[in-house]
Amino acid sequence: MDAVTQSLLSVLPEMPELLSVRCSILTAIRQEGPVGRRSLVGREGLSEREVRAVCDLLRKQGLITAETSGMKVTPEGERVLDLLQPVIRRWTGLEELGTELCRKLGIQKVMVVPGGDDDDLTKHRMARAACGHMAGVLQGGAVVAVTGGSTVAAVADEAAAAGLPEGIRFIAARGGTGGDVKSQANMIAAMLAAATAGDWTPLHLPETLAETSIGPLMEEPSVMEAMAVYDRTDCIVHGIGDAIELARRRGADEETLEKLAAEGAAAEAFGYYLGRDGSVIHRLRTIGLSRSQIDRIPHPLAVAGGTEKASPILAYMKQAPERTVLVTDEAAAREMLRLSGGETK
């Protein structure tokens, strides 16, 4: 950050947040327009009165127009928004934070959004960043696999406004776990397809299977179709979980939980329980994307945030494909740097 910018921010420390909020509203209008004010309420935590004030200011500055059908961004608004996006990232320091963390993790890119700790507002910020990344790297007809979880479910909520190309095929990366329907991988894949005029390949299986069940199920036509789709996957959108928490959620008995804890299980992803060094401690018996298929996917996209996820993310990244892009929040990013110290991948 240059000296002039530092001096400016010392006098107006609220400027980065103010600029970020206004640009977020302007971005939403560009993506969703024509759009009414009420549909923007809640974005960046704004009330209806606050959204009205921001929209009135943007209209007076000639950045948006307000018509009967809703608000739309003007050509000047488009120009200003494109110019300011990199400025916001620099002023908030999140770009530098992402770059430093990226070097520590040894992956392709880290995108850091403001906020934490695992609140809905921050989840949707991460989701919008993930959707923006997908919109930039995917083409129509691509295949996207998704895991379950509330953070990946937020990606489905934000997909309609992200400008993703039409014709993407979505598929669950593995079977369902039970619990909240909206956070199941199958449901998330279906919601993404509906939001983006895409297609959906269902995978109607439980997440954990008996060893004797896997062979016969692999011969089922619907499962064989899913396996063929996995071989063509271009992007995998996945969360990263805390190993013990997820094992408990899956109904593991106390003996299994104690064993995982004794062996240092820190993270879970794709049915693999990982130690802090990234080694596989335990694997679920499941049908879904295989490790060899995951390693071949061109665009692995991990979405996880919150301070408590810092240790699981670090563990997973020890063995993540180098092409991985991580979307996380500021709280998790700073905690990861604190935990990792000078250590690199």
Rank of each mutant, 00 (worst) to 15 (best):
L9Y: 12
T151Y: 04
H282A: 11
A265F: 03
K318T: 03
W200I: 03
V35M: 02
G264W: 10
T65H: 13
E76C: 08
A193D: 06
S311N: 10
A262C: 05
R296W: 06
G215N: 12
A66E: 15
I188E: 00
V54Q: 00
E100A: 15
G278T: 10
I64Y: 01
E207S: 10
P300N: 08
R59A: 15
G176W: 09
Y230E: 03
E158L: 06
S69D: 15
A261C: 06
M218D: 14
E225V: 13
V87C: 08
E211Y: 12
R248V: 06
I236S: 02
A53C: 03
S222D: 15
T151R: 02
T233Q: 12
G116R: 00
P114I: 03
Q108D: 05
L101A: 01
L138M: 12
R276M: 13
L19Y: 01
I171M: 15
E32I: 06
V143F: 10
E100P: 00
F170R: 01
T307A: 14
L284R: 05
G241R: 03
S213T: 09
A172W: 01
G179W: 02
A302H: 02
L94C: 04
D234L: 09
D329T: 02
A28N: 02
M1V: 09
D253Q: 08
R89T: 11
K259N: 11
L257W: 04
L246M: 11
V155G: 01
G98K: 00
G98E: 00
L246A: 04
G33P: 05
D119C: 07
I244Y: 09
A197I: 07
A261D: 11
M224S: 15
L97D: 07
L289H: 02
E158M: 14
P13Y: 14
H133P: 06
E158S: 14
L164T: 05
K60F: 11
I313A: 01
L274H: 07
G62E: 13
I171G: 04
A185G: 14
E330W: 00
Q61A: 14
A129E: 02
A332T: 00
T307V: 14
K60R: 15
G62H: 11
L8A: 13
E254C: 06
A53M: 12
I171V: 15
L57H: 13
T307L: 11
Y316C: 10
E48P: 04
P216R: 09
I240G: 03
I294E: 02
A161L: 03
G149F: 07
R169G: 08
T177K: 14
M336I: 03
E50A: 15
M71L: 15
A156C: 06
L339N: 09
P16G: 11
A332F: 01
K345G: 14
I236M: 15
A252I: 06
A154T: 06
E100C: 06
K72G: 09
L138C: 08
M187W: 09
V87P: 06
I88Q: 04
S7T: 08
